[in-house]
Write a protein that binds this DNA or RNA. Structure first.
Lengths: 244, 244
DNA sequence: ATGCAGAAATTGGTAGGACCATTGGACCAC
DNA sequence: GTGGTCCAATGGTCCTACCAATTTCTGCAT
């Protein structure tokens, strides 16, 4: 006897129905992120529901980061929507910032290594060329501005996730990336943060180009290790600022 | 000159103010998960805002999984809340095909191994006892019903994630679990699905109890590998049902 | 024509009131 | 006890009106 054989019935689910209708709408109209979707009043009239109900539904989507509402302007699509989407709110209630940052890095350590290994297994010659291109851009930015660039660095990593063939890597690590940078603000006083990670980017690329999964995994782990070290240095600096 | 030194002022942020007030309320009243919080009407009156505004705020919290609203009964706290909490919606685009299922397993492979290793490093004697308890329950269920039990098996794994000390493991793997089981229902015709993974549970536990991170990692990888094999067998069976 | 200030329309945000649907307890008949 | 009915409390929905921010239009001065 399975307890799931008698699921609770749903008599009313107005907001869910509204959201389902909206999913169908954006698909029918082929709306892209950035596009404006109909007025709350229009939606309420078309769907034959109260404007309040429409607002509750849109509030939920706003909380999920799917839409953005601008007073006086309209409601805009912020991300692609599809019928089979899973929403999972991540809650990070760690004590201090340092702990939370380390937590995001632990996830990245696991996923980054796996993605690099899969990438080395599955990369086509065109994929390898694309990754090299991103690597060149990143290295040039590094030399020009004499420091790690968040932007180009991120592009390089994203290319690896994409080539891994598993879209979940990019989506989850992107969430970690954003979570990380939300705690960031002040770089904990470490001026050359990320500097030590630079050489490992090329090392990862070379392993991928050589179709060496284990090597790519190892180099990715080293890269994350340098970031963790920087983070620990910063935390120590904050705790003992006078003992320099 | 940091662009963040001049954040945009907030002329109106009623719902945020409501949520902040609610955080203060649950802390002042020391509310625990499961407790009921005041009526929407009461909140609207006390906070001097419209009931609509209260509802929008509660809708956001509901979306984050912090509260649960039951019509006719009330609104109940579902998770602990604190002022310094960071929420980040993770939206994953899944599919219902074989490839998507494999993708979730690739993520689990990476995270499961890392979590097991961290668990082996950080587990206290009490933690190890707790994990053993879950393992016993699972093994008994296995022998009684002669098959892997999704429920008890999941409890065992969750215990490991918790002991890892990083709440993100449990949350992200839970998302993978959800994606996987969304299209589960029938185990692709493989009756003894997961059977092969059984012995590795105890193997993982023994590595954790022995404080052997590398061993725990290796056993976790083997466990996921058996699940991947089962999945492939099921897919082959679906494609070639007549060639048995 | 051009440019710009101010009016007007549009749109999301808030307010307040009313009613419906569900829940859970009180109460009662059997 | 069991089952049923009633009733108050509570979230869900609807309606209308107005506020606040934004965009668009208008019309005057140049």
């Amino acid at each position: 006897m399975d307890q799931n054989s008698l699921p609770p019935i749903q008599t009313t689910a107005r907001d869910d129905a509204v959201l389902k209708a909206l999913v169908g709408f954006v698909r029918a109209e082929a709306l892209q992120p950035g596009d404006r979707l109909p007025t709350e009043r229009i939606l309420a009239e078309r769907l034959k529901v109260s404007r309040n109900t429409v607002r509750e539904a849109l509030t939920r989507w706003e909380g999920l980061g799917l839409v953005e509402r601008r007073q006086g302007s309209g409601t805009y699509l912020k991300a692609a929507v599809s019928p089979d989407m899973l929403h999972m709110p991540l809650t990070l209630a760690g004590g201090n910032d340092f702990t939370s940052l380390m937590h995001t890095l632990e996830i990245r350590r696991a996923l980054e290594a796996e993605a690099a290994a899969l990438c080395a297994e599955r990369a086509s010659p065109a994929d390898i060329a694309e990754i090299m291109r991103k690597l060149d851009i990143m290295e040039q930015a590094f030399r020009t501005r004499d420091g790690m660039s968040s932007e180009e660095d991120w592009e390089f990593h994203q290319a690896i996730y994409r080539v891994s063939g598993n879209p979940l890597f990019e989506q989850i690590i992107a969430a970690m990336h954003e979570l990380f940078h939300r705690f960031w603000e002040h770089p904990l006083g470490v001026r050359d943060f990320g500097h030590a990670s630079f050489p490992y980017h090329r090392a990862i690329y070379e392993c991928i180009a050589a179709r060496d999964p284990q090597g790519a995994r190892a180099e990715a782990l080293k890269l994350i290790a340098t970031v963790e070290d920087d983070l620990k240095r910063g935390a120590a600096k904050l705790k003992l600022p006078s003992q320099t």
